[in-house]
Every structure is written in structure tokens, then in C-alpha cells.
Simulated assay, not measured.
Amino acid sequence: MERELICICCPIGCHLKVNIEENKVAGNGCKRGLDYGIKEVKNPVRILTTTVKVKNGELPLIPVKTKGEIPKDLLFKCMEELKKIELIAPIKIGDVVISNILGTGIDVISCRDVKNLK
């Protein structure tokens, strides 16, 4: 079975053809495309970026992201976990919002400082 993908590793956007049974990639202009094609077909992963509610802060929401890639099929479950969170200001950039989210070994961290209103 063969899947067609557009590589997102660089601005060129090579059109890849990934043969799943043979672990072969065609159309890649570099090694990153080869690695991306196989990884995207076998175990797609993403970095999750979103916002979390803040209590007593100068802003009502704070941007957060996963510190590394998580399995693509866990994105919506992670979003559900993050919806339950309400951080209390002050918050510093890089603070861990959730450690080891859903057992992935990846932390969710804050991407901005938020001062306390009081």
C-alpha cells in the first residue's frame, strides 16, 4: 500500500510517496523527508499548542504547548485535560502546567509570563 504526503520539514514541500510495506519513501529532496514520511505513516506525532484559563491574572488565558511531540491520536484527549485546568497567576514562561500528560512522558509548559492582578 502506498500513501502520498506533502513533506512539512522545510519550505520546499516535497510530494512524497510512502510504501508502507517496504518502508520506502520516494520524492524526498533530503533525509528529513525520508524520516518524516516513514514516521508520519507509522506513528504520526505533533506538538500541541493551545491556551489554558488563568485566575487572578492580567490575562484570562495563557498560551501553552507540549515540550515535545505527542502521538497525534492523543491530541483531543490532551485538549480535554487542559480544559479542566485553571492556573493561578503569577505564571512564568516555562512553568510546567501538566507533567507527563496522559503518560506520554511529555510536559505541557506555559509560553508566557502572566502577572497577578493583586
Rank of each mutant, 00 (worst) to 15 (best):
Y36C: 02
G37T: 08
K39F: 10
K39H: 14
V41K: 09
V41I: 14
N43E: 15
R46F: 12
I47S: 11
L48M: 13
T50K: 03
T51G: 03
V52Y: 05
K53V: 07
V54I: 08
K55E: 10
K55M: 02
N56M: 12
G57I: 01
E58H: 11
P63C: 08
V64S: 05
K65C: 13
K65F: 07
T66A: 06
K67R: 14
K67V: 11
K67T: 12
G68M: 04
E69C: 13
I70E: 13
P71D: 11
D73W: 10
L74W: 08
L75Y: 12
K77W: 03
K77D: 15
E80M: 09
E81L: 06
L82F: 02
E86Y: 01
E86S: 11
E86P: 01
E86V: 15
I88S: 04
A89I: 02
A89R: 08
P90R: 08
K92N: 10
D95F: 05
V96H: 00
V97N: 01
I98D: 03
I101T: 04
L102Y: 09
L102P: 09
G103F: 03
I106C: 02
D107Q: 07
D107H: 10
V108K: 02
C111I: 05
C111S: 11
V114L: 01
N116V: 08
L117R: 13
K118D: 15
